[in-house]
Structures are given as C-alpha cells and as structure tokens.
Design a protein around this nucleic acid. Sequence first.
DNA 1: CTGTGAATGTTATAATGTTGCAAATTTTGC
DNA 2: GCAAAATTTGCAACATTATAACATTCACAG
Lengths: 163, 163
Amino acid sequence: MLARPTPYRPHNHDACVSQALADARIICQQQNARLTPIRERVLELIWRSHKPLGAYDVLAELASDGHNAAPPTVYRALDFLQQNGLVHRIASLNAFIGCTYPGESHAGMFLICRACGNVLELTAPDVSSEVRKAAADEGFRTENTTLEIAGLCPLCQAEPGHD
Amino acid sequence: MLARPTPYRPHNHDACVSQALADARIICQQQNARLTPIRERVLELIWRSHKPLGAYDVLAELASDGHNAAPPTVYRALDFLQQNGLVHRIASLNAFIGCTYPGESHAGMFLICRACGNVLELTAPDVSSEVRKAAADEGFRTENTTLEIAGLCPLCQAEPGHD
DNA sequence: CTGTGAATGTTATAATGTTGCAAATTTTGC
DNA sequence: GCAAAATTTGCAACATTATAACATTCACAG
C-alpha cells in the first residue's frame, strides 16, 4: 500500500498498478470475495489509466483485448469493485478510479483537475468530522458522502495544458 | 428569501414556491439575465416538486401542460438556472433542485434522504473552510465543490416510509 | 423598420446505465 | 467424487440521461 498518495509527481506506474492488484488480491481473500479474472482485469485497466475511466472506456479496452464484453459485464465488475472498496465512482464525471486507500474505512475526497483530468484522492479527517457534525445538527443519519472538488492541480496552475 | 430552511417540517408549499419565483425575478433583473417564460416555468416545476426532479421529469410536466418541448429546451433552461444560481444539480441523482440560498454565494451541501427522497440544502461554513484547507494543502485551486450526503432524514429514521 | 444577437424549436444521435433470462462456472453438502 | 445450490458471466434488448447541429423566432438597439 502506498505510504502516501503520489499525486502530481512522476512515478513508476507499472509498480503502482501491480501494487494495487496485489493489495486487491489480499483484501478480497480476507473478505471472502472472489476477484475473478474479469474483475481483476477491470481493476487493472482502471489503475493503468490513472485517470477516471468511464464504464464504456473500460468496455472499449476490453474489446481491444479481444474480450467481447457487453455493458452489464463491466457494470457488474465495477459494482463488485465498489462494494469491496477497490474503486470509487466519481459522480460528477460518471467515471471510476482506483481507490488509494483500499481496506481502510474512509470517506474519500477527490481533487479533480479540470485541465489534466488527474484525480487525487484524499482522506481528510477534519473535513469528515465537520460533515458529520453538520449532518448531525439536522438530525440526519449519514450513510454515504460524495465529496468532489473540481479545480486546477498545482501543475496545471503553473503550466497550463501540460498533460 | 427564507430565513432558515424548512427541511422536514410541514409548510405552506405554495407560498414557498411563489417566494422562490419572486426572488428569482429580482435576482435575474439585478444580473441582467432574462428569466423567460420557459425558464420561469421550469424553475416553478422544480420548486413545486420540492424533491429533486430529473430533466425528463420536467419534460413530462411540461408535456402535461400542453407544452411540447424537446430535451434541449429543458437542458438549456436548466443550464441557465444553474448559471444564475437558481437551481443546483445533484450529481449523485442526475436531478435538479431549487437553490435555497439564491443570490448568496455559497458552497451547497445536500442532505439526501434515501427513504423519502427529500433533500435539504445547507451552507456549512465550517465544512467549506475545512474543504478549502484540505485542497490548499495539496496546492489545489478549488473552483467548484460537490458535497452530497446520502442517508436518512429525521422523520424517516423514526417512521420508515412515511412519505 | 431592420439588422443583430439571444433564445427557442426540431431532428437526430450520443453517452450512460439497467432488466431479464440463459448458460457456464464455482461452491457446498453429502 | 457428485449432484444440488449459488454465484458469475453471456447476451439481447431496452431505458435513461445528455448533446450536436442547424433552422426559426423573438427582443431590442440603432
């Protein structure tokens, strides 16, 4: 597992992907969840891209593999991965991204760069606790939080259109 | 403008809608934005429902009015209303809801009850400031925040399926 | 008036997501 | 092992959400 997110720094992406897959195998084993070949392949594709990938993007990648899948196959794999905390759905993009903190219970917060399309997932305990507090003040029982911030990442502020 | 959101309390809904429309007219006049009949009608339909309304729901309501509109008409009206801060789009629902704080610059936070479908919009300065802080720590320039909390409202916790 | 830009109408199509059922595969109880 | 049960996948059709492209109408300044 990554010690810290490697957001906007260059990094060895192959290692990044293998690590994510290795983590996923362990987590699924612990949870008695079956990381079947399709599911693992979908997870790999999502990690390879490192940017949010739409369901139909995944479908296209599978097709170029020679795997002739239909939409339900992809959506089911994505559901499974979400259920097991391996990917997140970004509602404002209709797209999916690998979870940076799999296995750890967390309320993800996503920084989405509108210029380069990269997304950084953070866990911000102070944010989460303020959110819980605000909801509790209204007597609301929080089950699921969607927190997505669109803007400009550090690189794109300095160097527009770098990627 | 409402002094305070009337979240889960019964209230005079007609007054609520008229007030929202009156506010909208004033705001558009101030901003030199043209609140045309279609736009105003769409805003009214959204307020009447008091629950998030999908674009095609709006379309259906217009149709039952005898107004035979096509999707672009509705989407354009919704875009206009969003641009002018009169409605919000709830990304996790693909639906729209009237803004409770039109005219005031704010980062909305939405409490979405999965049982009754009601949505309460809050402005939570403490949440906003924590969000800004977390983004700033990463050097990220925030432009737009999506914060949607799914869960159970007070009434539905007590009385499942009340609405 | 009349030219200009904004708003709306219209048709078609793209993008995203789901339902329902059949076939294959894996697990489980014996 | 082996048959029943449960899970997973394949597949076809369809539902929902959103946009593109271009024509037409409308409001208003000159």
